[in-house]
Amino acid sequence: MTAPVATVLLVFGRGVTTAGGRHVLTPASAARVGAAIDYVHAHRDAFAAAAAPLVVFSGGWAGASRGAPRPPEGCREGDLMLAAARAAGLSAHAALKLECRSRSTLENLLHTVEDGLLAGHAFGPGHPLGLVSHAWHLPRIRFLARKVLGLPGAALLDVPATGGEPASRRERALHVASRLWFLGVTDPAGLLRRERAMVASLRRRATG
């Protein structure tokens, strides 16, 4: 049986840095943009018989919780990922959208929904939502996507990026902590409260 193709991709940012006085994507963020571009090109024949695919770039100010300064207007993760995709010519093959308010993976999902960027799309095993990130990040994204979007695992398709940085040592701890702190919670406000409490707890443990 032919594997289903995701006609909607949600791309998660992985930070912004500076080079030559300019704000630029980290190599990991750039790798995720590249993975989305490669996926669209690899499935161009499947998309030819339907509407153009949709690619949503989600990423704002990930360093906010660590006290990182606010990036200038137009220089958040989502802004720069969208610009990189356009520069690579992806807008000729896909509709591109942007979310640039989020400060965490949970907020990536919540704000994407709140901004209506997935409106009009129904997801299921035959029409999955593509999640674009590194393999070590995808398990936590899947867990949170089920919470926020209410989708079964079969309605989510991993689109792993490679390169840019090694696997995050902190990610496994975040995944385990998320499963504990978000147990039984599905409403957006409750999830955000739990996330803030979880981050504060992890920070105290790291410095205690």
Rank of each mutant, 00 (worst) to 15 (best):
M1N: 11
R14D: 14
A19M: 01
G21Q: 01
V24L: 01
L25C: 00
P27D: 07
A28Y: 10
A35M: 09
A35I: 03
A36K: 02
I37N: 00
Y39V: 02
R44K: 08
D45C: 00
D45F: 00
A49M: 06
A49P: 01
A49V: 09
L54Q: 04
A62V: 08
A62C: 01
G63T: 05
G67H: 12
R76D: 10
R76A: 11
M81K: 10
L82Y: 04
A84M: 14
S91A: 15
H93V: 00
A94W: 03
A94H: 05
A94P: 01
E99D: 12
L106E: 13
N108A: 13
H111R: 15
L117P: 07
A119T: 15
F123M: 10
G126S: 12
P128H: 03
L129H: 11
A135N: 07
W136R: 00
L138I: 15
P139Y: 13
I141V: 15
R142T: 15
A145R: 04
R146Q: 14
R146N: 03
V148F: 08
L151F: 15
D158R: 05
V159Q: 05
V159S: 06
P160K: 13
A161Y: 05
G163W: 07
G164P: 11
S168H: 13
R170C: 03
H175R: 11
W181Y: 10
D187F: 11
L191I: 12
R193N: 10
R196A: 15
V199I: 14
S201H: 09
S201R: 09
L202S: 13
